[in-house]
Computed example of a mutant assay.
Amino acid sequence: MKQDAPVSQTPTVSELRRERERAEITGRIMDVARRMFVRDGYEAVTLRKIARAIEYSPAAIYQYFKSKEDLVKAISEKDQQELLADILACMQLTNPQERLVEMARAYAQWGVAHPNHYLLQLVPPFAWEKRKSTPQQQVPAPILQEALGALYETVKEGINLGRFNEKYKDPSLVAATLWAGIHGVIMLEITMGKDEWARIDNPEISFEDRFLTLKEVFSDGFLKEPSPAVKPKNRGRKAKK
């Protein structure tokens, strides 16, 4: 008995075009929603308002996201995956000191290049944070946990190799302190970076200056030897607002 030829699974030109258009519209919805959540707060933003902002009908936007909760989940997963990819790219470095510097740089540069992304993930609007007040929801998302885990393991490796001063034996404390410092540098830049008074009587101070100074303070305070000299890198990202 003659068998039918297998049906080709190759998408047609029109199907590829529809997929591309859907991806573009989805990205636009997420970008606008991200800005609105940061500016107005979670409770004040509705899918109807987002649709109006992108000049879409309320009914049409539901073809992409069934609810505001689905939209928030999609934004969180996308943003955290981008950040995690930048951080994990540094894990190939064998020297834990150099790896720490590059992880911190990747984290800081991502935050400054994507201020709305960073604010929404790390400094969520109060109303949104209030919704996550149950004990089960206070655990960081798996993606963020993986990023913090990479930081912790790198610090732990450095301590085990004897690269840190003997009094710093707790990798959790060292990792949390480094994270707090980088978070502060990012927040200063994206919330008050254009204000001269925030530069404390020196308008020439740049984000890179603050980052490198923090790196040196960390190296001088925690490490037995100065961290490897790492020149500033430009990862070619353009700021998204």
Rank of each mutant, 00 (worst) to 15 (best):
A141H: 12
E15G: 03
F164K: 00
S8W: 04
G149R: 05
M30E: 08
K233E: 05
R210P: 05
P228M: 01
A108F: 11
H183I: 05
F164W: 08
F218P: 12
V13H: 11
G27D: 00
I50C: 10
P124W: 04
K73I: 14
E146A: 11
T12G: 09
L93H: 14
R210M: 10
V174H: 06
I25S: 01
E21N: 05
A74D: 09
V7C: 09
K224E: 02
L119P: 06
N95G: 10
V217D: 02
R17V: 03
F37M: 08
E216A: 07
E146I: 02
P228S: 05
V112F: 00
P58A: 14
V72E: 13
E55T: 09
F126H: 07
N202T: 12
Q81M: 11
G162E: 03
K130T: 04
L71M: 12
V112M: 01
D201H: 08
Q136A: 12
D79Y: 07
L173C: 07
W197F: 13
A141V: 10
S14M: 15
L223V: 08
A141E: 10
N234G: 07
V38D: 07
T134E: 12
I205N: 00
I182E: 04
A180L: 07
K130C: 13
H183F: 02
K194T: 15
E98V: 06
E19Y: 14
C90W: 00
A239P: 06
R237C: 03
Y152D: 04
Y107E: 05
N234K: 06
A106W: 03
K169S: 15
P226F: 08
R131L: 14
R48Q: 13
I61F: 07
P142D: 09
K49L: 13
G41H: 05
S133P: 02
D4Q: 01
L84T: 00
G149V: 00
D195E: 15
T26W: 03
L212R: 12
V185W: 00
E55M: 08
P115K: 11
A127V: 03
Q137F: 12
K169D: 15
Y152L: 10
A239Q: 14
V7T: 14
R163C: 07
V217G: 11
P58G: 11
D40Q: 11
N95W: 11
E98T: 11
D220I: 11
A53W: 09
P142S: 11
V38A: 08
E166N: 06
A141Y: 13
Q9E: 15
P142W: 13
E82R: 00
V230I: 15
K231M: 10
R48P: 09
E102Q: 15
N116K: 02
R39W: 04
E208T: 13
A239G: 07
E225C: 02
L161C: 11
W128F: 13
A5M: 06
L71P: 10
S133G: 05
D31V: 02
D4Y: 03
T10V: 14
L16C: 14
R18S: 00
T10L: 14
D31A: 13
F211Q: 00
R34L: 14
V7K: 15
D209P: 02
P232D: 01
A104Y: 10
R34N: 07
I50G: 03
E77D: 12
P96F: 07
V7L: 13
N234C: 00
V139K: 15
Q3A: 14
K240H: 08
N202W: 01
D209N: 13
G111Y: 06
R210V: 10
A104K: 12
